[in-house]
């Protein structure tokens, strides 16, 4: 396991990721964006290791810059004019800042989704949605079963054709050969699907009241996590509703100042965003203590 948070019940994961992503979109105060970005990157690095740093510098950071540039060059609101552009429009401080904020939001959302992809596996997803839609859930499972099968069969067909002396030289001939191979795989897939359907029917598929089995159960730790997240979400939402965290960038940059309420909410927000990391640390400490005793 890359993270103890992966072991949590899917509902815990769903609430957490739903929370961070929605909050990231709603709380566009720089302090809160900073917290979310820092925590998402930290957790992504924990989950994916060093390659994540590469992703950040080669993809995410340029993306941030790109979004900022598009905004700065195409939007012309704002009162603080910096200079005049070649098309006669003016470059404003507000459009640059708002662009950067939006870019940060894009990066944050993508990073949290990267974490989501590591934590919420197919099984977890199926647990969350399978109960309501058992047939669609089964359909997704079948697709996930078939895909590696077909890719493997394509390899087999290509090999078989090569060994039968059917591979010819030249780019066009190669493409043609690949097309025939794909066509062979399609036939193979469709023909074999008949047997799969028979196997499903013979095991009672189509009876009324199909259920969807999953192996996840709520543990005390999960319940604690849910309770903690609900309290944190309530406090942060209250902070937002009562106006402690406001930020607007158009036409003038107006940010809520560092009031006690803002600092208070920000602390809660930070705790929420770093929750999986805290959870991991707690697990580590407990493990070390157990290990030290024996």
């Amino acid at each position: 396991m890359k993270s103890a948070f992966c072991r949590c019940h899917p509902a815990v994961n769903l609430i957490f990721f739903g929370g961070v992503i929605v909050f990231a979109m709603l709380l566009n105060h720089p302090l809160f964006l900073g917290i979310s970005m820092l925590s998402s990157l930290a957790y992504a690095v924990k989950l994916k290791g060093k390659p994540m740093l590469k992703t950040f510098f080669l993809f995410l950071f340029p993306l941030l810059i790109g979004v900022t540039l598009i905004n700065a060059l195409t939007a012309h609101y704002g009162v603080t004019k910096l200079c005049t552009l070649w098309d006669g429009n003016s470059l404003t401080l507000e459009s640059i800042v708002y662009g950067a904020v939006t870019g940060a939001l894009v990066v944050i959302t993508i990073t949290w989704f990267m974490c989501w992809n590591e934590v919420v596996t197919e099984d977890k997803f199926m647990h969350l949605f399978g109960k309501r839609m058992p047939h669609l859930a089964l359909l997704v499972l079948m697709v996930l079963r078939f895909v590696p099968l077909y890719i493997n069969q394509l390899k087999e067909v290509m090999d078989a054709r090569k060994n039968a002396g059917l591979e010819s030289e030249g780019k066009f001939a190669k493409i043609k050969n690949a097309c025939h191979a794909v066509s062979g795989v399609v036939t193979w897939a469709l023909e074999h699907s008949i047997e799969t359907a028979d196997s499903m029917k013979s095991r009672g598929y189509g009876l009324k009241g199909r259920t969807s089995y999953s192996r996840f159960t709520l543990s005390p730790a999960d319940i604690t996590m849910v309770a903690a997240m609900i309290i944190l979400i309530t406090v942060i939402a209250a902070g937002k509703i009562f106006g402690s965290i406001n930020a607007s960038y158009n036409p003038v940059i107006r940010l809520s100042g560092a009031t006690p309420l803002l600092i208070f909410t920000a602390a809660f927000y930070a705790f929420y965003c770093f929750l999986p990391i805290f959870f991991d640390i707690e697990e580590e400490i407990r493990w070390n203590r157990l290990y030290a005793k024996t």
Partner: peptide, 10 residues
Amino acid sequence: NPESQIVTDK
């Protein structure tokens, strides 16, 4: 055929 009777992925 062992392969084509299987419906799910795990």
